[in-house]
């Protein structure tokens, strides 16, 4: 069993200091829904947990005139209660709502989901679709990374020793823009995504798509931004042919594996179906909004 050292600093500097100077494997404790299970299965003798939830701003969300500034450790349950955010980013909120059970949402956070860097993370395709930026604090100060570049591999991300995710920011979208996130699971709840798709759509007054972003999950080592799928949608009225072209582009961009949750063939096919369906929902919302 791992011997745990627990610290709960009240400032970013304090957290960075602890993380940078740790002489045992150091982990950021946000909701803990992944970390506590992983620690139980770990062969580490000792681990440092830095609980970041006592740091100001880490568990809050603020939607301004220009952007959403999301404290990465805000619980999904609290996040999904923010009606103002839901009105602007319904797909992102849906993605947060899909993580685990009500109980898990009481602890799990968007930032935790991102930093755990699972290929199947629900919020990452939705963050990608919305062009989210990750603000990372570290011993050398702050840097900002686009979300699609944050995750670098299965369970790996671009954060170096001593760094932590301080904020997730998303610019307010243009008028007539909305998003949607869909995932496929065998049951109705509680499963890890077999495939996921987040789509953001901007329409002009005639219902023609002027901009789109498509993120897909669980079909490659990291969630992917799929420009080809977006390109297939832009310029169209999201007719069947355009949707199918986007679906095909998503399937083509995927490089899934076969595991206990799905096969290569199945995932490749279903991710296309999800892109099609999510794009349709996002477009409906963009019209309505």
């Amino acid at each position: 069993m791992v011997s745990v050292v627990y610290e709960a600093p009240d400032s970013i500097e304090g957290a960075v200091n602890l993380l940078a100077n740790a002489d045992v494997p150091a982990h950021i404790l946000a909701g803990g829904t992944d970390l506590i299970i992983q620690t139980n299965g770990s062969s580490d003798a000792e681990r440092l947990f830095v609980d970041v939830k006592k740091i100001a701003g880490m568990t809050e969300a603020n939607l301004t005139d220009t952007a959403l500034v999301l404290g990465p450790s805000m619980s999904c349950a609290a996040f999904t209660e923010c009606d103002d955010i839901k009105a602007v980013f319904p797909g992102l909120v849906e993605a947060a709502y899909l993580i685990g059970s009500t109980q898990v949402q009481g602890r799990a956070s968007v930032g935790g989901n991102l930093c755990n860097s699972s290929p199947a993370a629900d919020t990452i395709p939705a963050l990608i679709a919305n062009g989210a930026q990750c603000v990372i604090a570290g011993p050398g100060g702050e840097r900002t990374v686009p979300v699609e570049e944050f995750v670098t591999g299965v369970g790996r991300n671009c954060m170096e020793k001593g760094e932590l995710l301080k904020q997730i920011t998303i610019a307010r979208p243009a008028a007539n823009t909305s998003d949607a996130y869909l995932r496929f699971i065998p049951r109705t709840e509680m499963d890890i995504a077999v495939a996921g798709a987040g789509v953001s759509i901007t329409l002009d007054d005639n219902g023609t798509c002027t901009a789109a972003r498509v993120g897909i999950g669980a079909v490659a080592p990291t969630a992917l931004l799929v420009p080809d799928a977006a390109a297939a949608l832009v310029g169209s009225t999201l007719d069947d042919a355009a949707l199918q072209a986007a679906a095909d582009a998503a399937s083509a961009a995927s490089s899934p594996i076969t595991d206990r949750r799905g096969t290569v063939e199945y995932r490749r096919q279903v991710v296309g179906v999800l892109v099609k369906r999510a794009a349709t929902i996002a477009a409906e919302r963009a019209k309505g909004g």
Binding site: V4, G32, I36, F49, A78, Q103, G106
Partner: peptide
């Protein structure tokens, strides 16, 4: 908040 106590320290 409803949580699983097995996932809280």
């Amino acid at each position: 908040r409803l949580v699983c106590s097995c996932l809280v320290l």
